[in-house]
Amino acid sequence: MKKLFVSLFALAFVLVSAPAFSADIELAKTSTLESIVKAGEIRVGFESGYLPFEMTNTKGQYIGFDIDMGKQLAKAMGVTFTPVNTAWDGIIPSLITEKFDIIISGMTVTQERNLAVNFTDPYIVVGQAILLNKKHEGVVKSYKDLNDPKYVITSKLGTTGEQAVKRMIPRATYKSFEVETEAVMEVIQGNADATVYDLPLIEIMQAQHGKGKTVALTEPFTFEPLAMAVRKGDPDFLNFLNNFIRQYKNDGRWQQSYDKWIKSNEWQKDLQN
């Protein structure tokens, strides 16, 4: 009797789980992962110009921390890496309308963006820092000191730098720019008091252009994980990507790329002016 009960239970389990299993198989067939493998290429969306994550060199080639990772992802999938340079304000709509397969573009995970796309596990964590005009050295010691209308603060339009200024330094006079380097140059040229942006870029721009003219406040005042973004409803692709990130971060490739692009500035001489 006990054996009969077990058999009936097993049969019932199979009958109940079979539709769910079948649905999972059908969902897997519609995954972006499958279309990438069939097409033989992965189309990666990004906006060139975010140092040192995605940039254009003097040969017109795309280089940087994210580009290296995208190429390694393509290699892991056995497909061709196809870069798709896209304006930042249209990058999420372009992903949703399938202009490319994935965003790898130094994108910070935010709840607002997460309503439109799904994010992988973070592949690096950065935060907002401040590049300050040298005339304020010793007076402005943190973002809190800038919370006054007399200070003009810049950042790039539509970024978490802009969000940080509006949320955490709301009384300051804010000016947005389409390109982050323009926001930085306003400070270097003395037209603005400070710019707020991701720490890696602040350090790079200070070293490259701001010596003697600026002071970098390099203690991040926000927590910002950067992740890849994909279209919603694709658990198979997310699973593959999260496993890739885990492997990439723990087999030495991530550290090698970090040392090359973030800890070193040797690549700067190869950039387009």
Results as ranks from 00 to 15, higher is better:
157 L>E: 11
264 S>L: 01
265 N>Q: 06
44 V>T: 04
76 A>R: 11
85 N>G: 03
224 E>I: 00
43 R>S: 06
128 Q>Y: 00
135 K>C: 10
236 D>L: 14
161 G>R: 05
226 L>T: 00
76 A>K: 13
53 F>E: 04
201 L>V: 08
96 I>N: 01
223 F>V: 08
250 N>E: 13
262 I>W: 02
163 Q>H: 02
235 P>A: 00
6 V>T: 10
273 N>T: 00
259 D>V: 02
157 L>R: 08
90 G>T: 15
101 D>H: 11
68 D>I: 07
202 I>F: 02
41 E>T: 02
215 V>K: 06
230 V>T: 15
162 E>I: 02
268 Q>F: 00
186 E>M: 15
208 Q>M: 10
72 Q>T: 09
141 K>E: 06
207 A>P: 00
112 E>W: 00
86 T>E: 08
114 N>D: 13
260 K>V: 09
152 V>T: 15
26 E>C: 09
270 D>S: 14
157 L>W: 06
248 Y>I: 04
253 R>S: 14
16 V>I: 15
45 G>T: 10
141 K>C: 02
137 E>A: 10
193 D>I: 05
68 D>W: 05
240 F>G: 12
199 L>V: 11
218 T>D: 07
27 L>M: 10
35 S>F: 08
132 L>H: 05
221 F>S: 07
71 K>Q: 12
171 R>L: 10
213 K>E: 03
96 I>G: 01
167 R>F: 14
253 R>I: 03
248 Y>C: 04
152 V>C: 06
128 Q>D: 15
257 S>L: 03
117 V>E: 07
141 K>G: 09
253 R>L: 12
57 N>M: 08
155 S>M: 07
149 P>H: 09
42 I>H: 05
72 Q>E: 15
136 H>F: 15
258 Y>E: 09
273 N>K: 09
162 E>T: 08
47 E>S: 02
202 I>P: 03
187 V>Y: 01
89 D>I: 09
82 T>I: 09
27 L>Q: 07
85 N>Q: 06
107 M>Q: 04
82 T>D: 02
